[in-house]
Each structure stands twice: as structure tokens, then as C-alpha cells.
Amino acid sequence: MHLPPGAQLLGREWLGFDETGEIALIRFQAQPSFTNRHGTIQGGFLAAMLDSAIGIAALAALTADLTVVTQNLDTRFLKPAGVGPITARARVVERTDRAIIVQADLVDTKGITVADATARLRILRKKTDPEGT
């Protein structure tokens, strides 16, 4: 599968689900170019990682004819994040026919949660291409 440019920039890698089958695991690669003046990962990149992981977890819970768009992303920055791998753990906490709520956290290589977020996403039916291209 071809990754969108934003996912490529973040070094997104789908790891699968945890042993419960309910928590999606997605790894990102925080680059030196993502750092702020303090040498830690700038919050906007962490928010982008959370948004990406939340979207992937939501899509994993839906049928192939549906997609999602983020309506809101409530993000908390808990600890400084360093350059290197950061793993997202995302799970669906609520779903209706029109919306899905997903919670995710970002964990560094030491097991420290550096940020978390809860998002509400709108569920949409994918548009079909009448020409089949």
C-alpha cells in the first residue's frame, strides 16, 4: 500500500493489533528535523502522529466502503519527546452510524507516554469513481 506524503514524512509503520485485538499499534520515526529550540519533538509533529494513528485505528474498525475525517482532536503534551521511534496505541472508544471516537497515546522507547489525544471523526461513505479508474 502506498503511504500518503504526510505518513511518509512521519515514518508511519503499521504494526498490527495488540494481543487483545482492540488496540492498534502504529510506529512513527521522529526525525531531528522535527525538533524545536529545546531539542525535543515539536508538538505539531506529535499531534500529527496522534491524528494519523487515530485515523488508522478508525479505518481498521470500518468496512472498506467507509472512510473518516477528523472533526476534532483534543491533544495533551505530557513529557518531552526525543528523536527516534515513537509508538502510538489507539483504540475505538465509541461508535455510532455517523461518528467514531478514538483515543490514542504516544509512547517513547523507554515506555513513557509523551502525548495523548481523543478525537471525534465523521464516518463517510467513500465516493465511487464512475469511470472505474
Rank of each mutant, 00 (worst) to 15 (best):
Q42W: 14
A58H: 11
K79R: 15
G39T: 11
Q29I: 03
A57K: 03
P80R: 13
P85E: 09
R89E: 12
M49S: 09
I26T: 15
A61W: 10
R91M: 08
L15F: 06
T63R: 10
I54V: 10
D97C: 05
E19I: 06
I23E: 09
F45H: 10
F17Q: 07
L66F: 07
I23A: 01
L10R: 10
V92K: 15
S52G: 00
G43T: 11
A53W: 07
T67C: 01
R12T: 07
T96P: 00
M49N: 10
R12D: 00
F45C: 04
G82S: 14
R12L: 15
A61K: 08
V92C: 08
E13Q: 15
Q29Y: 09
P85L: 00
A30W: 08
T75I: 11
R37Q: 13
A30M: 15
S52Q: 11
G55Y: 01
Q71R: 14
K79F: 04
D65L: 02
F17I: 00
I41R: 10
V93Q: 08
A64I: 05
L46R: 08
N36H: 14
G11V: 00
V68P: 00
P85V: 02
G11D: 06
G21Y: 11
A58W: 07
I54K: 10
D51N: 04
F77N: 00
V68M: 03
F45D: 02
T35Y: 11
A57E: 05
V69W: 01
P4C: 04
E19R: 14
P4H: 07
P5N: 11
G55P: 07
R91C: 01
G6H: 09
A30Y: 11
V83T: 14
F77Y: 15
D74W: 05
S33I: 11
T70V: 06
A48P: 09
A7Q: 15
A53G: 09
P85G: 05
A64N: 04
E19Q: 13
L9H: 14
G82N: 12
A30R: 11
P32W: 06
A53C: 06
D65E: 13
R76L: 00
R95E: 05
A64H: 03
F45E: 00
P85Y: 03
A88F: 08
A61T: 02
R89C: 00
Q29V: 08
T87K: 14
I26M: 05
R27K: 12
A88D: 01
T35D: 09
A24V: 12
E13S: 12
L78G: 05
P5F: 06
G6K: 03
R89H: 15
Q71M: 13
D65V: 01
S33A: 14
R27Q: 14
R76N: 08
I54M: 13
A81L: 03
T87E: 05
Q71N: 08
G39W: 12
H38V: 09
A53R: 09
E22V: 05
N72I: 00
N36C: 13
